[in-house]
């Protein structure tokens, strides 16, 4: 019976097969490949035959003097993004939501979504040109009688610039999810509030913003799973010899150790350590959200 059913659907299984092989080879084999975090991987011996070393690589992580700095850099960038980039999306969505003229609204939306589709090289290249010593920003500063600022080589400017570039690229795109939530608000609520004499600020404060609570909670929970992630492309492109001290994040470190340094086992251990922390944080945040009465993700 079962066999007959499978035979009946043989064409569908044929369609399934390439995708299945893809998932097994490029998604599941790398998961098993994580065993090399506990081994001393050498290319000749491969995944299976390389010798076991237990937790040696994890001990190296804790003993490494760079570790505090790299964790700090990563968390600092994520804090900046949470404080500035995340609210920026909400504010932009709220502003777009207040616009009644659909032509104007659509035009603004077309403009602010556009940067999402250009590559990081394009963003960073333009940023270097705008902020460089010959760039328009420093020319403007000089014309106004100020000292030029070395944006690109100053360690203090590094993470703020990463945040600002990210905001330029993704704030507009990030409004989509909030706008979707806002379009679900019952218009009767606004009518009732207007009859009760509510002004525009009060409508935003007491109706619009509260209705975004669920969406904000979900995004924050998901964000918790990524507090140790940083956009590797952007950082790789922005970092230079003068900013590598403040610019080296966990992702960049894994890339440098693993790919550039070919220290595969150590970098894998590092990556695994990082994703386990991410997993714990996202589950913790989800629990916390449920405790304070939000829905949570899982």
């Amino acid at each position: 019976m079962y066999i007959a059913k499978v035979w009946k659907y043989r064409f569908l299984y044929l369609l399934l097969l390439p995708g299945l092989i893809y998932f097994i080879v490029y998604k599941y084999l790398p998961m098993f490949g994580l065993v090399i975090a506990f081994k001393d991987y050498s290319a000749f011996q491969g995944f299976m035959d390389s010798p076991w070393v237990g937790l040696r690589h994890f001990r190296t992580i804790f003993d490494s003097p760079d570790m505090v700095r790299i964790f700090f850099n990563t968390l600092y960038l994520n804090a900046l993004q949470l404080l500035f980039a995340f609210p920026a999306g909400i504010v932009m969505a709220l502003m777009l939501n207040e616009v009644k003229n659909t032509v104007f609204k659509r035009t603004v939306q077309s403009i602010v979504y556009l940067p999402h589709f250009v590559s990081w090289i394009v963003v960073v290249s333009i940023a270097l040109t705008v902020l460089g010593s010959e760039g328009i920003l420093n020319s403007l500063l000089e014309a106004l009688g100020f000292q030029p600022i070395n944006f690109l080589t100053s360690p203090n400017w590094f993470m703020p610039l990463i945040t600002l570039e990210g905001m330029w690229k993704e704030t507009g795109w990030g409004t989509i999810i909030f706008l979707a939530a806002l379009s679900g608000i019952n218009p009767n609520l606004y009518e009732a509030a207007v009859i009760d004499g509510g002004n525009r600020w009060q409508l935003i404060r007491f109706i619009t913003l509260p209705s975004l609570r669920g969406t904000i909670a979900i995004l924050l929970i998901l964000q918790m799973g990524h507090v140790l992630d940083t956009g590797i492309e952007q950082i790789l492109l922005m970092v230079n010899s003068l900013t590598k001290g403040v610019g080296t994040t966990l992702d960049l470190y894994v890339f440098q150790k693993g790919i550039e340094g070919a220290d595969y086992s150590f970098a894998t251990a590092f990556g695994l350590f990082k994703s386990l922390i991410g997993l714990v944080l996202i589950l913790g945040a989800n629990r916390l959200a449920k405790k304070v009465g939000e829905e949570g993700v899982f």
Partner: peptide, 11 residues
């Protein structure tokens, strides 16, 4: 969950 950068690279 995923294998991450290095195991994927090696595969």
């Amino acid at each position: 969950f995923g294998g991450g950068m290095i195991p994927t690279y090696l595969i």
